[in-house]
Design a protein around this nucleic acid. Structure first.
Length: 954
RNA sequence: GCCAAAGUGGUGGAAUUGGUAGACACGCAGGUCUCAAAAACCUGUGGCUUCAAAAACCGUGAGGGUUCGAUUCCCUCCUUUGGCACCA
């Protein structure tokens, strides 16, 4: 450039050095550790915690966490006390299988992967509060998971019932759905069978109505598609249960239908292969055929049945049910397309108005009756599937319903059936109860004890002193103002009492039930979990009669672990200052020691009132919970938008109903305290080469190498630039270098102009004002990709106008870049601040500034990280930049000139004139271009949008 | 089959409520600097017609509609992705 030897050489951009330095500084400064008790503007920024897989954190996790972190950093700069915790959802089948594969126990493996995950989570540069991290396999955590199970039980929401599992006869073990491939075992390829097992369920259906209703409240700030997902899953349907008398029998068949309006067209009944009536009503003539059909159908795996498509099979029972409406004799069939666990396990067939019923009737030669006329007016007989009339219409061939529109007929016929005592209106839900039991090892043991002795006497916890006490005073535990919403509490208890004979929850003082270390376990061959072969685990004494008893050996579904973790974060036990969190082993020992002490006291606690006393000891601190709940923002993957969120909402509601949860109350109606999340946002997925990343496809990208090469700042910014945060993006390796180039350019622009101190030009101020406005709006909407684009636009402008940019503008720019590239911006920010301090001391003696600057940078770099710097204030705690709205108003506007809606010219005009149609019209019509296009045509119409557009219609 | 989301240059993607389609980037091409290379910087880059410029025309999965004007709203269809699945 010039001959001067004094030109300062910009400091090289060394992300690896800078990043570690600032991560340490932030930790020392506790930049991201809010005072949970004293925070004045709490903002709980929650992200879905990761499932620690074998490979470690992958780029998809990093994408999600970075997006959430940017939101958190933005809110912090808006003046909020942001709490952003992280943890590990570490129980579950994948960890268990992987551990088996590498020959470790799951807990050994968990320790290794925990170290790896936390290392990776540190290096991505998120503003995590590391003093509050948790792991679901930590006894200190699952103690409370078990406590929630116990409370579910005590409140009648946990019960046992039979449910089908996948069973591999060769491995003698239960398989998860995902371990079944083409109805064969993933490990040994033998055919998978179905097996009925007694399992634990949570009665989430008792909350179905409330879970549904809340989604319609205006405060329910979730994306529409996620709301729809929740509603469809709950799947509320109004219908009627009809009891049909079986001819020549004392039995009746009970059928639920949502279309009783078409009941005059019912010509048959179908019951499930495992319906109890199968044993009772089949006539001798048909019994052989029926038995063989049932035997084959009952073991037919689900996917084989699916592969057979809509092909309808079935057997006639020989029995008939009478349709009371018209006396029609409906043959009763048995078929595998009817499922026992849906509705009443029986269907009434109306083949004229249901395609599936038509297929069945058609295949079996059952008569088809038309009872509805659609808009096409077709009243002919229905002989082809495309004639099946499922849409709305008018009734015919339906006695007293004839001529009515179906909706009117629906009400009339339901009233009629109810009046006659033949049916009863019933609302059903697609939602089924939550299956908690897993016949596995790596999970929280279900904290229940079964006592054979008590069972033989018909006793259970519900007949114990404590159980009776709670049972008599349900209201003392439930603070639910709208009780009918959760169903009849006493009834639930009643239901549980009957099926729970012999069962006792592990006394709270004995929790946690520790998962024993097992070096080698084998399937028991009975369908029980691996713990069933660990004698020292399952052998115990009955809390009631002190006789020999056994523990439940199933473990909890991991969805239970993740249904309450956000409640634990703010109350995670802090260990002594300066001490690292205890590792699992040490903590296990600690808990064991406590348990010994507890065990010795356990049986002193026979006084029922102690139950209530103990309920004061909770997994959370009331004051902290009240301050931070409900969650301000929850962001997570779209794949969890149904199950995880539904279970979480249910757990929250239950804990709240029982009075365990003290929630912050809204001042107006800005949020709903009945819901755990004020706002939920679903981010998109990162794909690679057009497909979701998965190990089997071999397209998993690991962030470590990329961070080593480019630094976390580059990777973060690149990931956020790929596409809109709610839509995900396609990861390509070659794009990241471009992002690195840009950040380096920013580095150079800032360091090069660091020593200049001229005034900003008006143009620069305007450009920055526009940038602040745009970037702020984009970040608020989580449109990070366009926010980055706007910052890039600014740097492009900067390149051409270096002389007009002062440190105020540079600082605004760095503040906006800070959430994306937190390390680099911190470094540059601190350099500028030091320089400013020095400049104040020296006055504007520019001669020495370059030298000074280099000295300061050296100082900064070599700063002893251990010595606290009282002057330090992180860029991440600085307020977000603001702008003067007056600067946004452009002097000149561009008016688009259209003729018949096509762009023909544009006109630059000053802002005021651009608002006035007559001026714009006059100027436009003067333009030669426009005159050429108008020719001799007459202008029929002129459309004018002030400041934007004028359109002549000719 | 049902539910949800999406389809825009060679590529990833932009385009508040309908108002300049392709912002920003990647890639590519040409250039400056250099002995050379890298880095950096500059210029160009939807298609088509054209030596070029200017200009016109075509263009947001396909077809139709509403409108002065449609990537945006409506209808039909096709394709892709995710979820559920014989749900009575």
């Amino acid at each position: 450039m010039n001959n001067s030897t004094q030109v300062s050489i910009p400091e090289r951009f060394k992300p690896q050095e800078i990043e570690i330095k600032w991560q340490n500084k932030w930790a020392q400064d506790q930049t991201y550790t809010p005072d949970l008790k004293r925070a004045s503007k709490p903002y709980y920024n929650l992200m879905m915690f990761p499932y620690p897989s074998a490979e470690g954190l992958h780029i998809g996790n990093m994408y999600a966490f970075t997006g959430v972190d940017i939101h958190g950093r933005f809110m912090r700069m808006q003046g909020f006390d942001v709490f952003e915790p992280i943890g590990l959802d570490g129980f579950g089948i994948h960890s268990e299988n992987y551990a088996i594969k590498v020959g470790r126990t799951p807990s050994e493996h968990a320790k290794i992967s925990q170290v790896n995950f936390y290392r990776q989570l540190h290096q991505i540069g998120n503003g995590f509060d590391w003093s509050k991290s948790l792991e679901t396999y930590d006894p200190d955590y699952y103690r409370w998971t078990q406590w929630i199970f116990v409370e579910m039980f005590k409140h009648g929401l946990a019960y046992r019932a039979k449910a089908e599992v996948n069973w591999c006869p060769s491995c003698k073990t239960v398989l998860a759905d995902e371990q079944v491939i083409d109805s064969k075992c993933e490990r040994c390829s033998s055919a998978v069978l179905k097996k009925d097992l007694e399992q634990w369920f949570f009665r989430i259906t008792a909350y179905a109505q409330r879970l549904l209703q809340n989604t319609y409240k205006p405060q329910f700030n979730w994306p529409e598609k996620v709301k729809i997902g929740q509603r469809n899953w709950i799947g509320k349907k109004e219908g009627i249960n009809i009891n049909y008398q079986i001819e020549n029998s004392s039995e009746t068949v009970n059928v639920w239908t949502s279309r009783p309006d078409t009941n005059f067209g019912a010509t048959f009944i179908v019951i499930a292969v495992d319906h109890p009536l199968c044993q009772k009503i089949v006539t001798k003539e048909f019994s052989m055929k029926a038995k063989s059909y049932i035997r084959i159908a009952i073991n037919k795996p689900k996917d084989i049945r699916l592969a057979e498509g809509r092909l309808k099979t079935g057997v006639f029972t020989g029995a008939y049910a009478i349709n009371q409406l018209n006396g029609y004799k409906m043959p009763i069939w048995i078929s595998d397309f009817v499922l026992m666990d849906v509705g009443t396990g029986a269907v009434v067939g109306v083949p004229g108005h249901d395609k599936r019923d038509f297929e069945f009737a058609h295949a079996m030669g059952i008569p088809i009756k038309r009872v509805v006329v659609g808009t096409d007016g077709d009243t002919s007989e229905i002989t082809r599937i495309d004639q099946v009339q499922e849409e709305a219409g008018t009734m015919m061939n339906s006695g007293f319903l004839d001529g009515m529109y179906i909706h009117e007929a629906m009400i009339k016929v339901m009233d009629y059936l109810e009046n006659k005592g033949w049916g009863k209106r019933v609302t059903v839900y697609h939602l089924r109860d939550w299956l908690i039991s897993r016949q596995r090892y790596w999970g929280a043991p279900i904290p229940m004890i079964y006592c054979e002795m008590c069972a033989s006497e018909g006793k259970s916890w519900f007949t114990s002193e404590e159980g009776r006490y709670v049972g008599q005073n349900p209201k003392s535990q439930i603070s639910n103002p709208n009780d009918q919403k959760i169903g009849n509490w006493k009834l639930e208890i009643g239901n549980s009492m009957r099926s729970m004979v012999g069962w006792y929850p592990v006394p709270e003082a004995e929790l946690p039930v520790l998962l024993p270390d097992v070096k080698d376990w084998k399937p028991t061959g009975t369908g029980e979990g691996p713990l069933a072969s660990v004698e020292r685990f399952y052998e115990t004494t009955c809390p009631e009669c002190f006789g020999r008893a056994v523990r439940e050996t199933d473990v909890c579904d991991t969805f239970l672990d993740s249904s309450w973790y956000y409640l634990r974060y703010p109350s995670v036990r802090s260990f002594e200052d300066g001490k690292e969190k205890l590792d699992i082993e040490t903590r296990n020992l600690e808990v064991l020691k406590n348990q010994e002490i507890k065990n010795s006291k356990i049986h002193d606690q026979k006084n029922p009132s102690s139950y209530f006393k103990k309920s004061e000891i909770l997994p959370w601190e009331d004051d902290v919970t009240k301050k931070w709940m409900p969650i301000d923002s929850y962001i997570g993957g779209a794949e969890h938008t149904v199950l995880h969120l539904l279970y979480t909402r249910f757990t929250w509601m239950a804990l709240k109903d029982w009075g365990f949860l003290k929630v912050g109350q809204p001042k107006k109606a800005e949020f709903d305290p009945d819901e755990p999340f004020k706002r939920f946002f679903a981010h998109g997925l990162i794909i690679k080469d057009g497909a979701k990343m998965s190990k089997s496809k071999g397209n998993v990208v690991v962030p470590d190498e990329l961070i080593a090469l480019y630094g976390a700042d580059t990777l973060r910014t690149y990931l956020m630039f790929l596409g809109r945060f709610d839509q995900g993006g396609d990861f390509r390796d070659w794009g990241i270098a471009g992002m690195h180039k840009w950040l380096y350019r920013v580095w150079r622009l800032v360091t090069e102009s660091g020593s200049s101190h001229q005034e900003s030009s008006v143009a620069a101020k305007k450009t920055m004002a526009k940038t602040i406005k745009g970037v702020t709006q984009d970040i608020e909407r989580l449109h990070y990709n366009t926010a980055i684009a706007k910052l890039m636009e600014f740097t492009n402008w900067w390149m051409d106008h270096k002389e007009g940019i002062d440190s105020t503008i540079i600082k605004s720019f760095l503040l906006m870049l800070a959430p994306f590239a937190p390390h680099m911006t911190e470094e540059l920010w601190q350099q500028i601040r030091m320089l400013e301090v020095e400049r104040e001391k020296l006055g504007n003696d520019s001669k020495n500034l370059d030298i000074l600057r280099n000295q300061e940078i050296k100082k900064l770099r070599n700063q002893d990280q251990k010595s606290p710097n009282s002057n330090f204030k992180s860029i991440h705690k600085e307020p977000w930049p603001t702008y003067d709205p007056k600067l946004i108003i452009e002097d000149m506007v561009t008016i688009i000139v259209q003729i018949n809606g096509k762009l023909r010219d544009s006109l630059s005009i000053n802002h005021e004139d651009g608002q006035i149609q007559s001026i714009v019209e006059k100027l436009t019509l003067n333009s030669a271009k426009v005159r050429k296009w108008l020719g001799n045509y007459k202008i029929k119409k002129t459309i004018f949008v002030p400041g934007k557009l004028i359109n002549f219609v000719i």
